[in-house]
């Protein structure tokens, strides 16, 4: 048996040669295994306890953020508010694809203004209110569609039929973003599928054109629409997959490499 404080030489312990002859051939390797019968009684030193104390303090700090313990119904911190992402573009919401952002804005406007008459599926009722689904005036030239929304409409429509007393102007309270959103929404929903976006810039142009009409303030008629407004609204088109701020609908500049954004 090696004495407690002597390190057995490597070759003995490891290759089992020297110790073997001492205790007999059958137990060579085991012979050098130290048998330590009692543990030391050294106290836990003050330094170690201090370090442990610091760790306990850190852990306590972490626990302090935990809210009420064993409260299995609360999933969020009390008074939780989303922290805006740091860096450039502070306090901006995360950008989203343009089409989705415009559609989301348009859905709200549609639900507030259009749904009462044209219905949740934009099918109208066939007597007083025409369908927007499949309407060529909705999916066709954007300026004609904008004039109807902003000024209302009287007389026969695209299918030659007249509906009730006509449509009143919807311009009150609509911002260019709202107009752009609701036009994009109607043109890409209810089975309509133009795939393009009526941008905020186009909607601003539509408001100007509407204000500059000869019969400003009156409902438009099919004749006027065909004569003056059968064209697209001016303005650069917007890639439906480009990232925009979902609130302002303005394009977001990213530090993305050009290849990152998928092109249609």
């Amino acid at each position: 048996m090696s004495s407690p404080n002597k390190m057995p030489f490597f070759k003995d312990a490891y290759h089992m040669s020297g110790a073997q002859r001492r205790v007999g051939a059958a137990a060579p390797a085991s012979a050098v295994d130290g048998r330590v019968d009692s543990n030391g009684t050294a106290p836990v030193s003050l330094g170690v306890l201090t370090v442990f104390g610091v760790v306990v303090l850190i852990a306590g700090g972490i626990l302090g953020g935990a809210g009420r313990f064993f409260d299995y119904r609360t999933m969020f911190r009390a008074g939780y508010e989303r922290i805006p992402a740091p860096g450039e573009g502070d306090a901006q919401p995360p950008p989203k694809a343009a089409l989705a952002s415009y559609m989301a804005r348009g859905a709200k406007i549609y639900a507030a203004k259009c749904i009462v008459c044209h219905g949740p599926e934009a099918k109208g009722d066939g007597i007083n209110f025409p369908a927007l689904a499949g309407s060529t005036w909705a999916t066709g030239e954007t300026q004609r569609f904008a004039m109807i929304i902003l000024n209302g409409l009287q007389g026969p429509i695209s299918n030659g039929k007249s509906y009730g007393a006509g449509m009143p102007s919807q311009a009150a309270g609509l911002t260019p973003e709202d107009v752009a959103g609701v036009m994009t929404y109607v043109r890409n929903n209810f089975g309509n599928n133009t795939g393009d976006i009526v941008t905020v810039a186009m909607a601003k142009a539509a408001l100007e054109i509407s204000a500059a009409r000869a019969k400003a303030g009156q409902q438009v008629t099919a004749a006027e629409l065909t004569a003056d407004h059968r064209k697209a609204l001016p303005g650069p088109p917007l890639d439906p997959t480009a990232l925009v701020n979902p609130i302002t609908l303005t394009p977001v500049r990213t530090s993305a490499p050009a290849s990152a954004a998928p092109k249609p």
């Binding site: 170690v48 442990f52 852990a59 935990a66 809210g67 409260d71 299995y72 119904r73 999933m75």
Partner: peptide, 27 residues
């Protein structure tokens, strides 16, 4: 994640406290 709010904090505190058993054995 939408789990009861205190659970991740208890886990994090316990993970930090694991320093004590680990350090004791290492010493």
């Amino acid at each position: 994640a939408p789990v009861p709010y205190f659970l991740p904090y208890v886990g994090a505190a316990a993970a930090a406290l694991l320093f004590i058993p680990i350090c004791a054995a290492a010493i």
